[in-house]
Protein backbone atom coordinates (compact mmCIF):
# COMPACT_ATOMS: atom_id res chain seq x y z
CA UNK A 1 0.00 0.00 0.00
CA UNK A 2 1.20 3.52 -0.73
CA UNK A 3 2.12 5.37 2.44
CA UNK A 4 0.19 8.55 3.20
CA UNK A 5 3.55 10.10 3.97
CA UNK A 6 6.98 8.68 3.25
CA UNK A 7 10.06 10.63 4.27
CA UNK A 8 13.38 9.34 3.05
CA UNK A 9 16.64 10.81 4.34
CA UNK A 10 15.03 14.26 4.63
CA UNK A 11 17.48 17.08 5.35
CA UNK A 12 16.56 20.71 5.87
CA UNK A 13 19.29 23.32 6.10
CA UNK A 14 18.94 27.05 6.73
CA UNK A 15 21.55 29.58 5.62
CA UNK A 16 22.92 31.35 8.71
CA UNK A 17 25.79 33.78 8.18
CA UNK A 18 28.19 32.06 5.79
CA UNK A 19 27.23 28.52 6.60
CA UNK A 20 24.26 26.20 6.66
CA UNK A 21 22.58 25.10 9.85
CA UNK A 22 20.90 21.78 9.67
CA UNK A 23 17.50 21.66 11.41
CA UNK A 24 16.33 18.28 10.13
CA UNK A 25 19.07 15.76 9.50
CA UNK A 26 18.42 12.53 7.66
CA UNK A 27 14.91 11.71 8.82
CA UNK A 28 13.18 8.67 7.33
CA UNK A 29 9.64 7.88 8.41
CA UNK A 30 6.45 6.36 7.02
CA UNK A 31 2.89 7.17 7.97
CA UNK A 32 0.41 4.61 6.63
CA UNK A 33 -3.14 5.54 5.58
CA UNK A 34 -5.43 5.76 8.61
CA UNK A 35 -2.52 5.78 11.02
CA UNK A 36 -1.86 8.39 13.71
CA UNK A 37 1.86 8.85 14.23
CA UNK A 38 3.15 11.07 16.99
CA UNK A 39 6.29 13.10 16.41
CA UNK A 40 7.71 13.91 19.83
CA UNK A 41 10.61 16.07 20.91
CA UNK A 42 11.68 19.12 22.84
CA UNK A 43 11.14 22.57 21.36
CA UNK A 44 13.77 23.35 18.75
CA UNK A 45 14.39 19.71 17.85
CA UNK A 46 13.12 20.27 14.28
CA UNK A 47 9.56 18.93 14.51
CA UNK A 48 7.90 22.03 13.12
CA UNK A 49 10.56 22.49 10.46
CA UNK A 50 9.85 18.93 9.35
CA UNK A 51 6.14 19.77 9.10
CA UNK A 52 6.88 22.93 7.11
CA UNK A 53 9.06 20.89 4.75
CA UNK A 54 6.23 18.44 4.11
CA UNK A 55 3.85 21.34 3.41
CA UNK A 56 6.41 23.09 1.21
CA UNK A 57 6.12 26.16 3.43
CA UNK A 58 9.83 26.79 4.02
CA UNK A 59 11.34 30.03 2.70
CA UNK A 60 12.99 29.72 -0.73
CA UNK A 61 16.49 30.16 0.74
CA UNK A 62 16.14 26.87 2.63
CA UNK A 63 17.90 23.80 1.29
CA UNK A 64 15.71 20.70 1.33
CA UNK A 65 17.15 17.37 0.17
CA UNK A 66 15.99 13.79 0.32
CA UNK A 67 12.46 12.76 -0.48
CA UNK A 68 9.01 13.65 0.82
CA UNK A 69 6.22 11.66 -0.75
CA UNK A 70 2.60 12.46 0.01
CA UNK A 71 0.37 9.59 -1.11
CA UNK A 72 3.14 8.55 -3.47
CA UNK A 73 3.84 11.96 -5.04
CA UNK A 74 7.15 13.68 -4.54
CA UNK A 75 6.95 17.10 -2.86
CA UNK A 76 10.60 18.15 -2.77
CA UNK A 77 11.41 20.33 -5.78
CA UNK A 78 7.80 21.08 -6.77
CA UNK A 79 7.18 24.58 -8.12
CA UNK A 80 4.96 27.06 -6.27
CA UNK A 81 1.86 26.38 -8.31
CA UNK A 82 1.97 22.62 -7.80
CA UNK A 83 2.73 23.07 -4.10
CA UNK A 84 -0.31 25.30 -3.75
CA UNK A 85 -2.47 22.74 -5.51
CA UNK A 86 -1.29 20.14 -2.99
CA UNK A 87 -1.55 22.21 0.17
CA UNK A 88 -4.99 22.24 1.72
CA UNK A 89 -6.05 19.53 -0.70
CA UNK A 90 -4.01 16.36 -0.32
CA UNK A 91 -2.13 17.43 2.79
CA UNK A 92 -3.37 19.98 5.24
CA UNK A 93 -2.31 21.38 8.52
CA UNK A 94 -3.76 22.25 11.91
CA UNK A 95 -1.61 24.75 13.73
CA UNK A 96 -0.93 25.40 17.35
CA UNK A 97 -2.95 28.40 18.38
CA UNK A 98 -6.43 28.81 16.88
CA UNK A 99 -6.68 32.34 18.28
CA UNK A 100 -3.93 33.54 15.96
CA UNK A 101 -4.31 31.13 13.07
CA UNK A 102 -7.72 32.32 11.87
CA UNK A 103 -8.22 35.59 10.02
CA UNK A 104 -9.88 37.76 12.71
CA UNK A 105 -12.12 39.60 10.23
CA UNK A 106 -13.44 36.81 8.02
CA UNK A 107 -16.36 34.80 9.32
CA UNK A 108 -15.41 31.31 10.48
CA UNK A 109 -17.70 29.64 7.96
CA UNK A 110 -16.19 31.54 5.05
CA UNK A 111 -12.73 30.45 6.17
CA UNK A 112 -13.81 26.83 5.85
CA UNK A 113 -15.57 27.46 2.53
CA UNK A 114 -12.51 29.28 1.22
CA UNK A 115 -10.42 26.12 1.47
CA UNK A 116 -13.00 24.22 -0.55
CA UNK A 117 -13.20 26.89 -3.23
CA UNK A 118 -9.41 27.15 -3.45
CA UNK A 119 -9.26 23.59 -4.77
CA UNK A 120 -12.61 22.71 -6.27
CA UNK A 121 -14.97 24.33 -8.73
CA UNK A 122 -17.81 24.91 -6.35
CA UNK A 123 -20.36 27.72 -6.31
CA UNK A 124 -20.70 30.09 -3.39
CA UNK A 125 -23.91 28.56 -2.06
CA UNK A 126 -22.71 25.00 -2.44
CA UNK A 127 -19.45 25.84 -0.67
CA UNK A 128 -21.48 27.36 2.15
CA UNK A 129 -23.56 24.21 2.46
CA UNK A 130 -20.47 21.98 2.40
CA UNK A 131 -18.72 24.15 4.98
CA UNK A 132 -21.75 24.09 7.27
CA UNK A 133 -21.82 20.30 7.02
CA UNK A 134 -18.09 20.13 7.87
CA UNK A 135 -18.64 22.39 10.87
CA UNK A 136 -21.37 20.04 12.06
CA UNK A 137 -19.06 17.06 11.48
CA UNK A 138 -16.39 18.50 13.74
CA UNK A 139 -18.93 19.03 16.48
CA UNK A 140 -19.92 22.68 16.25
CA UNK A 141 -23.46 22.94 17.59
CA UNK A 142 -25.93 24.92 15.44
CA UNK A 143 -23.27 25.27 12.76
CA UNK A 144 -25.53 27.18 10.36
CA UNK A 145 -26.07 29.95 12.91
CA UNK A 146 -22.36 30.19 13.75
CA UNK A 147 -21.32 30.36 10.10
CA UNK A 148 -21.23 34.16 9.92
CA UNK A 149 -19.59 34.72 13.30
CA UNK A 150 -16.06 36.14 13.37
CA UNK A 151 -13.53 33.95 15.26
CA UNK A 152 -13.51 36.01 18.45
CA UNK A 153 -17.12 35.08 19.20
CA UNK A 154 -16.10 31.40 19.46
CA UNK A 155 -14.26 29.72 22.32
CA UNK A 156 -10.72 28.41 21.81
CA UNK A 157 -11.91 24.83 21.45
CA UNK A 158 -14.57 25.81 18.91
CA UNK A 159 -11.99 27.80 16.94
CA UNK A 160 -9.70 24.78 16.81
CA UNK A 161 -12.65 22.77 15.50
CA UNK A 162 -13.03 25.37 12.74
CA UNK A 163 -9.35 25.02 11.87
CA UNK A 164 -9.78 21.25 11.74
CA UNK A 165 -12.92 21.55 9.60
CA UNK A 166 -11.02 23.73 7.11
CA UNK A 167 -8.11 21.26 7.13
CA UNK A 168 -10.42 18.33 6.35
CA UNK A 169 -12.47 20.21 3.77
CA UNK A 170 -10.94 18.50 0.76
CA UNK A 171 -10.49 15.08 2.37
CA UNK A 172 -6.68 15.12 2.45
CA UNK A 173 -4.75 11.88 2.65
CA UNK A 174 -2.56 13.40 5.36
CA UNK A 175 -3.31 15.79 8.19
CA UNK A 176 -0.39 17.40 9.96
CA UNK A 177 -1.38 18.58 13.42
CA UNK A 178 1.33 20.77 14.90
CA UNK A 179 0.73 21.01 18.66
CA UNK A 180 -3.02 21.14 18.05
CA UNK A 181 -3.96 21.19 21.73
CA UNK A 182 -1.11 23.11 23.36
CA UNK A 183 -3.03 26.38 23.58
CA UNK A 184 -6.21 24.77 24.93
CA UNK A 185 -7.59 23.88 28.37
CA UNK A 186 -7.03 20.30 29.45
CA UNK A 187 -10.70 19.30 29.14
CA UNK A 188 -10.89 20.84 25.67
CA UNK A 189 -7.61 19.09 24.76
CA UNK A 190 -9.22 15.70 25.37
CA UNK A 191 -12.22 16.67 23.21
CA UNK A 192 -10.02 17.81 20.32
CA UNK A 193 -7.88 14.67 20.50
CA UNK A 194 -11.06 12.58 20.57
CA UNK A 195 -12.25 14.46 17.50
CA UNK A 196 -8.99 13.83 15.60
CA UNK A 197 -9.26 10.18 16.45
CA UNK A 198 -12.91 9.93 15.40
CA UNK A 199 -12.19 11.69 12.09
CA UNK A 200 -9.38 9.24 11.44
CA UNK A 201 -11.76 6.35 12.15
CA UNK A 202 -14.52 7.79 9.92
CA UNK A 203 -12.45 9.04 7.02
CA UNK A 204 -9.23 7.05 7.15
CA UNK A 205 -7.12 10.21 7.16
CA UNK A 206 -3.52 9.64 8.19
CA UNK A 207 -2.35 12.01 10.91
CA UNK A 208 1.12 13.19 11.83
CA UNK A 209 0.67 14.60 15.32
CA UNK A 210 3.49 16.85 16.39
CA UNK A 211 3.75 17.42 20.11
CA UNK A 212 6.10 17.75 23.05
CA UNK A 213 3.46 16.22 25.30
CA UNK A 214 3.80 12.49 25.90
CA UNK A 215 0.35 12.49 27.51
CA UNK A 216 -1.16 13.50 24.16
CA UNK A 217 0.80 10.73 22.45
CA UNK A 218 -0.50 8.14 24.89
CA UNK A 219 -4.09 9.21 24.24
CA UNK A 220 -4.27 8.98 20.45
CA UNK A 221 -1.15 7.73 18.67
CA UNK A 222 -0.67 4.35 17.06
CA UNK A 223 3.05 4.83 16.61
CA UNK A 224 5.54 7.33 17.92
CA UNK A 225 8.68 8.84 16.43
CA UNK A 226 11.01 10.52 18.91
CA UNK A 227 13.13 13.33 17.56
CA UNK A 228 16.27 14.78 19.08
CA UNK A 229 18.43 17.56 17.66
CA UNK A 230 17.12 17.13 14.12
CA UNK A 231 17.29 13.32 14.00
CA UNK A 232 14.91 10.50 14.78
CA UNK A 233 16.28 8.52 17.71
CA UNK A 234 13.50 6.01 18.15
CA UNK A 235 10.38 4.87 16.35
CA UNK A 236 8.02 2.37 17.95
CA UNK A 237 4.39 1.45 18.51
CA UNK A 238 2.88 3.72 21.16
CA UNK A 239 2.22 0.96 23.67
CA UNK A 240 5.64 -0.58 23.06
CA UNK A 241 7.36 2.76 23.49
CA UNK A 242 5.73 3.42 26.84
CA UNK A 243 6.31 -0.15 28.07
CA UNK A 244 9.81 -0.75 26.70
CA UNK A 245 11.55 2.44 25.64
CA UNK A 246 14.87 1.48 24.05
CA UNK A 247 16.77 4.69 23.37
CA UNK A 248 18.29 6.38 26.45
CA UNK A 249 16.70 9.70 25.40
CA UNK A 250 13.23 8.18 25.23
CA UNK A 251 13.80 6.54 28.56
CA UNK A 252 14.94 9.84 30.04
CA UNK A 253 11.87 11.59 28.60
CA UNK A 254 9.53 9.04 30.13
CA UNK A 255 11.45 9.26 33.39
CA UNK A 256 10.96 13.01 33.41
CA UNK A 257 7.15 12.71 33.31
CA UNK A 258 5.71 13.92 36.61
CA UNK A 259 3.63 10.74 36.83
CA UNK A 260 6.83 8.66 36.81
CA UNK A 261 8.02 10.40 39.95
CA UNK A 262 6.93 9.29 43.41
CA UNK A 263 5.09 11.85 45.52
CA UNK A 264 7.41 14.08 47.51
CA UNK A 265 10.37 13.35 45.26
CA UNK A 266 11.96 16.01 43.08
CA UNK A 267 10.93 15.88 39.41
CA UNK A 268 13.58 14.19 37.31
CA UNK A 269 15.37 16.28 34.70
CA UNK A 270 17.65 15.33 31.86
CA UNK A 271 21.03 16.85 32.74
CA UNK A 272 22.78 19.10 30.22
CA UNK A 273 21.35 20.91 27.24
CA UNK A 274 20.29 20.25 23.66
CA UNK A 275 23.37 20.79 21.46
CA UNK A 276 23.51 24.02 19.47
CA UNK A 277 22.24 23.43 15.92
CA UNK A 278 25.31 25.10 14.44
CA UNK A 279 27.75 22.91 16.42
CA UNK A 280 26.38 19.41 16.39
CA UNK A 281 28.72 16.70 17.67
CA UNK A 282 29.93 14.33 14.97
CA UNK A 283 28.82 11.17 16.75
CA UNK A 284 25.64 10.50 18.68
CA UNK A 285 23.95 13.83 19.40
CA UNK A 286 22.62 12.76 22.76
CA UNK A 287 26.02 11.44 23.95
CA UNK A 288 26.91 14.52 26.03
CA UNK A 289 23.78 14.02 28.16
CA UNK A 290 23.69 10.23 28.09
CA UNK A 291 24.45 8.09 31.14
CA UNK A 292 25.43 5.14 28.90
CA UNK A 293 28.03 7.10 26.95
CA UNK A 294 31.18 5.20 25.91
CA UNK A 295 33.92 5.79 23.35
CA UNK A 296 31.90 4.22 20.56
CA UNK A 297 29.40 7.10 20.86
CA UNK A 298 32.00 9.31 19.12
CA UNK A 299 30.66 7.72 15.93
CA UNK A 300 27.15 8.23 14.69
CA UNK A 301 25.00 5.27 15.73
CA UNK A 302 23.58 3.07 13.00
CA UNK A 303 19.80 2.87 13.45
CA UNK A 304 18.88 -0.63 14.44
CA UNK A 305 15.53 -1.60 12.96
CA UNK A 306 13.35 -4.17 14.69
CA UNK A 307 10.29 -4.72 12.51
CA UNK A 308 8.68 -1.31 11.98
CA UNK A 309 10.53 0.01 14.99
CA UNK A 310 13.94 1.63 15.17
CA UNK A 311 16.34 2.91 17.80
CA UNK A 312 19.49 4.83 16.91
CA UNK A 313 21.82 4.00 19.77
CA UNK A 314 24.92 1.89 20.35
CA UNK A 315 23.63 0.83 23.75
CA UNK A 316 20.04 -0.07 23.03
CA UNK A 317 18.34 -1.93 25.88
CA UNK A 318 21.25 -1.66 28.28
CA UNK A 319 20.15 -1.05 31.87
CA UNK A 320 20.14 2.62 32.74
CA UNK A 321 21.78 4.05 35.84
CA UNK A 322 19.54 6.36 37.85
CA UNK A 323 19.01 9.65 36.08
CA UNK A 324 19.26 13.15 37.40
CA UNK A 325 22.06 14.24 39.71
CA UNK A 326 19.43 16.02 41.81
CA UNK A 327 18.49 12.82 43.58
Amino acid sequence: MTAALALCDLRVRFPVGDGLVSAVDGVSLRVEPGEIVGLVGESGCGKSTLAAAVMGLLPPSTSVTGSVRVAGDEVVGLDDRRLRAMRGDRVSMVVQDPSTSLDPIWSVGDQVAETIRAHRRVGRRQARALATQLMTDVGIPAAASRYDDPPHRLSGGMRQRIVIAAALANEPSLLIADEPTTALDVTIQAQILGLIRRLRDDRGTAVLLITHDLGVVAQVCDRVAVMYAGQLVEVAGAQELFDHPRHPYTRALLGALPSATARGERLAVIPGQVPDLAHQPRGCRFAARCPLRTDVCEQAPVPEPVGASMAACWHVDQPLPLLGGAR
Binding site: M55, L57, R84, A85, M86, R87, G88, D89, S92, M93, V95, D97, T100, S101, L102, D103, P104, E114, T115, A118, H119, V163, A166
Partner: peptide, 17 residues
Protein backbone atom coordinates in the same frame (compact mmCIF):
# COMPACT_ATOMS: atom_id res chain seq x y z
CA UNK B 1 3.66 38.79 9.30
CA UNK B 2 0.75 37.50 11.40
CA UNK B 3 0.57 33.73 12.01
CA UNK B 4 -2.71 33.29 10.13
CA UNK B 5 -0.95 34.18 6.89
CA UNK B 6 1.06 30.96 7.22
CA UNK B 7 -2.20 29.15 7.84
CA UNK B 8 -3.69 30.70 4.69
CA UNK B 9 -0.67 29.51 2.73
CA UNK B 10 -1.15 26.06 4.22
CA UNK B 11 -4.69 26.10 2.83
CA UNK B 12 -3.19 26.42 -0.64
CA UNK B 13 -4.23 30.02 -1.35
CA UNK B 14 -2.26 32.01 -3.92
CA UNK B 15 -0.23 35.03 -2.74
CA UNK B 16 -2.57 37.27 -4.72
CA UNK B 17 -5.63 35.96 -2.88
Amino acid sequence: QRPYVTYLRAKGLSPRR
